[in-house]
Design a protein around this nucleic acid. Structure first.
Lengths: 263, 263
DNA sequence: CGTAGTGTTGAATTGAATCAAGTGTCGTGG
DNA sequence: CCACGACACTTGATTCAATTCAACACTACG
C-alpha cells in the first residue's frame, strides 16, 4: 500500500479518506462514470446482488452514471417529482427535510452501496432533499425502468422488495433508538452503525472519517451540537474512542456495545 | 341508525366502537372470514386497489382469512420466521419490540386497511411482535405467493412497491417527529394522524375511541404515561379536544394543527 | 365485591437544551 | 504564502421540559 488511500495499521483495510494521489493499485477510481455494474466493486452489495451475468447486463442498460457531485451539491430537493432511485457509488450524502420554520432536520446518511430515494415511490414526490457531504458519485436508476425490469427478472423484484424491507426495518430501529435511548446510547449506537456500514464496503470498521458535521449528527439523533460534542469527549475520556476532528478511532468496540446493551 | 355502531352526531359517520348488537344495516360483519377481496369494504385502500376484477380474483385466491383475534392475542412474535404480510380487516394491532432489559417499546399501530409485517421481508424474520389491541381480524397474504403474483400482475407489483414506499416515508416522518417535536407537538400530531387514518376508513375523524393505552402511546412517542396524560388534560383545558377515558373528540382541529405548524 | 390494570395529579429531580464565550480549521483571495 | 473570514467545534454556567417518584382514583372484569 505504497500510494493512494491511507491504510488502517491495525486491520490493513483502507480508511474512507478520499485518495490524495492517484487511485490505489488494482482499484479503479470509484468516480469513473464508465464502469459497469458487472465490474463495480460494490456489486456484491448493491442492486446486482442475486442477479446472474445476463441479468446484470440488463440492469446495466438502464443505469445512468451521472457526473460526480461536489460537496454541498444537491442530488434532488424535497418535493421534486420522483423519477429515479439512486445507488451511491462513492462518497456520501445526507437527506434532510426543512421544517416550516426553515431549519432543517437530517433524516439519514447514505454511504457507498446504499440506495437513495425510496421515500418518493408512493407519493411520486421526494420527501427529502439529498446533499453530497463530500465529492461523491451515484448511479441513477429510473424507477419506471426498474419496475419494468423487475417484472422480467423475478430475482430483481425479490431483491428490491428486500432492499425496501430492509429500509423499513432500519427505520423502525431508529424509532426505538430515539424513543428510549439516552444521548450517550444514541451516539454509541450511531458510531457502531457507521462502523459496520464501513466494514460492509471493505473499509476499516475501527478507524474512519466522519463525512458529516457534529450538527448533522445531532439533528439526526435528536440532540444538539453541544451534546454530541460533549458525548464524544466523554467517550474519549473513557478510552472507548479516540476523536481528532472528523477522524474517529474505535478503541474498545465491546465496551461501546455494552453502553447500548445495558439498555 | 337505530342499531349497531354508534354514530357521530356531527358528521353522521360511525365511530370506531365495536358494534354492540348485531351488524349495522347494509354492512357485513367485518370479522366474517368468508368475505372476498372483491366485496371487502376496504378494497379501495388495501392491496386490491389498482387491480381489475380478474386480478382481484387472483389475489383472492392466495389470501387466507384467519379466525379473529381476541384482545391481547399475538399475530406473531419477534424473530418468528417471516412467512406472510397481513392486512388488517377489522380492529387494531400494535407492534412492539422487547429490549434486552425486558421492557417493551411500541413501534407502531395498525388500523383496518393497513399492512403488517413488511419489516420481516429483508431478514426473513419478523423484527416486531404484533398484538391485537381489541377483537380484530386480518387477511394473511403468504409473501412468496404475493411475489409470484406480483410477477404476473405489473399493477400489483407497482402497488406493493408503493405500499412499501409509503411505509418508508411514514417512518421518516416519525423520525423527524421524535427528533425535534415537544411532548405536546408529538401528542397533537399523533391525534391528527389517527384522525386521518380513521377518516380513510370512513369513520369519524373528530370522534373516536383510542384502542391503545396511554402507556402504549407514550412508548410510541418516546414519552412517559404521565406526560401523555398531562398533555391530554392540557389540550382539553385549552378546548382543543375532549377526553373521556379512551374516547377522544377533536373540538378544534385547526388549533390542533397550529400546535404542529408553529414548529 | 375485590383486584389488577389503567389513568390522573402533584412534587422533586435530572438529562439535555440553551445561552454564552471562546478556540480551531479550512478554503479563499490578496 | 499568509491573512482573513466563515464555519465547525468545544467547554462552562444556567435553565427547563420531561422524567421519576409517589399517592391516589377510576374502570373493567372475573
Amino acid at each position: 500500500m505504497s500510494t493512494g488511500a491511507q491504510a488502517d495499521k491495525t486491520t490493513g483495510l483502507a480508511i474512507n479518506r478520499i485518495a490524495s494521489a492517484g487511485p490505489a493499485r488494482d482499484q479503479v477510481c470509484p468516480h469513473n462514470t464508465s464502469i459497469s455494474c458487472a465490474s463495480c466493486r460494490l456489486n456484491e452489495l448493491c442492486l446486482p446482488i442475486a442477479l446472474n451475468k445476463t441479468e446484470i447486463h440488463q440492469l446495466d442498460e438502464i443505469v445512468e452514471r451521472n457526473r460526480p457531485f461536489k460537496k454541498g451539491e444537491h442530488l434532488y430537493r424535497q418535493n421534486d417529482p420522483f423519477k429515479s432511485v439512486y445507488a451511491v457509488r462513492a462518497g456520501s450524502f445526507k437527506s434532510y427535510v426543512l421544517s416550516d420554520s426553515g431549519q432543517g432536520r437530517v433524516t439519514g446518511f447514505y454511504l457507498p452501496g446504499e440506495i437513495i430515494g425510496m421515500d418518493g415511490i408512493a407519493s411520486k414526490h421526494y420527501a427529502n432533499s439529498i446533499q453530497a457531504l463530500e465529492h461523491a458519485s451515484i448511479c441513477e436508476i429510473p424507477f419506471s425502468q426498474l419496475e419494468k425490469l423487475s417484472h422480467q427478472l423475478p430475482n430483481l423484484q425479490h431483491h428490491f422488495f428486500a432492499i425496501m424491507g430492509n429500509e423499513i426495518a432500519k427505520d423502525q430501529q431508529i424509532h426505538t433508538l430515539l424513543c428510549s435511548y439516552t444521548a450517550e446510547e444514541r451516539t454509541a449506537s450511531f458510531l457502531l452503525g457507521l462502523s459496520s456500514r464501513y466494514a460492509r464496503v471493505a473499509l476499516s470498521p475501527v478507524r474512519f472519517l466522519l463525512p458529516m458535521t457534529r450538527g448533522d449528527i445531532g439533528e439526526y439523533l435528536g440532540l444538539t451540537v453541544e451534546t454530541v460534542s460533549r458525548i464524544f469527549t466523554a467517550l474519549q475520556r473513557k478510552g472507548l474512542i479516540s476523536v481528532k476532528n472528523r477522524e474517529i478511532e474505535i478503541l474498545d468496540i465491546d465496551k461501546l456495545r455494552e453502553i447500548i446493551g445495558s439498555h
